[in-house]
Amino acid sequence: MTDERQADPTPAFTDVRVPRTPRGLVLVLHGGTDRSSQPVDRSSLSWWRGRKLLRDIAPRLGRDGIGVVLLRYRVRGWNARAGSTPAPVADARWALDELARKHALPVAVVGHSMGGRTGVAVADHDSVRGVVALAPWLSDDDSVDPLRGKVLRAAHGTLDPITSARATRRFVERASRRADASFTDMGPVGHYLMKSVRAWNRFTVDGAREVLGL
C-alpha cells in the first residue's frame, strides 16, 4: 500500500458538491502553517476543518444553485521565498484554472486562516468575484492589488491567538480603497471556527452569496 506521506504531493479537489446546473461556485481553501514540506493528507486538521466547513455550507448554497469544492494543497506550508510563488497560491491558481475550464462560472473564494491569505493573493484571477476570509492570516506587507474591483468580506474573532484581528482590520481598511471591502467582528471567539459555528457558517454563506451577486 502506498503511504500518502511518501507519495509525490499534488493539489486535488477532495470534496465536490456541484449541482447539475450551477449558477456559480465556491472554492474553499483550508489553512496551513508558515513553513512545512509535509504533504496534506488525512492527518491534516486544517484540511479536516475545511471539509467540515464545506459540509456545513454546501446544502444552503446548493439551494441557490451554487456549487462548493474543497482544494487540498500539495504541502502544508506557505513556504514563501524571495522571487517565488507561495505553495498554496500556486495550487489555488491551478484550481481556479481547472474550475474555469470545466464550468466557466463566477467563483467566490472562501478561505480560513492561510486560506484567506491565499484567496486574497489569487483574487485577480478572471473567474474570481471576491473573497470571504475567515480569521485570515494577513499582514501589513500583503498587497491589496489583487482585490482591485472585487469584493472582500473578512471576519475575525477578538480572542484569536493564532492570527491577528487587528491586522485583518488594517488590511480591510487598505483594501477598501480598491475593492468593496468590509470587516465583521465575530466577538470573543478564537481561531478554529469551533465556537459560534452557526455564526461563522451564516457569515460564510451570506458572504459567498454577496460576492456572487445573489
Rank of each mutant, 00 (worst) to 15 (best):
Y73A: 01
G149V: 14
L25F: 03
L96M: 08
R174F: 09
G207C: 06
R174Y: 04
D56A: 10
R35W: 13
S44K: 10
A104V: 06
E4P: 15
D97I: 05
V132C: 08
R63Q: 15
R209I: 09
A100D: 13
G187K: 10
L45N: 14
R76L: 15
V132H: 11
A80N: 07
L54N: 00
A165Y: 05
G187E: 06
G190I: 09
H103R: 02
I66Y: 02
R49A: 04
L71E: 03
T168W: 06
T33M: 15
R129L: 13
P88R: 01
P11Q: 07
D91G: 04
L152K: 05
A82P: 08
Y192D: 14
Y73L: 08
A108M: 08
R174L: 08
V197T: 15
R93G: 03
T85Q: 14
P39T: 06
L99G: 00
A80S: 11
P11D: 08
D34V: 10
V75W: 00
A181I: 08
T184A: 11
D64Q: 15
W94R: 05
S46K: 11
G67H: 04
G157K: 14
S182I: 09
S164P: 03
F203A: 06
S37H: 01
S84I: 08
E4I: 09
S46M: 14
S196P: 00
R174M: 09
H30Y: 06
V26N: 03
M186H: 05
L53T: 10
R5K: 13
S37A: 07
R177H: 10
H30F: 02
T10I: 13
W48P: 01
A121Q: 03
D141I: 03
D56H: 04
V110Y: 01
L27I: 13
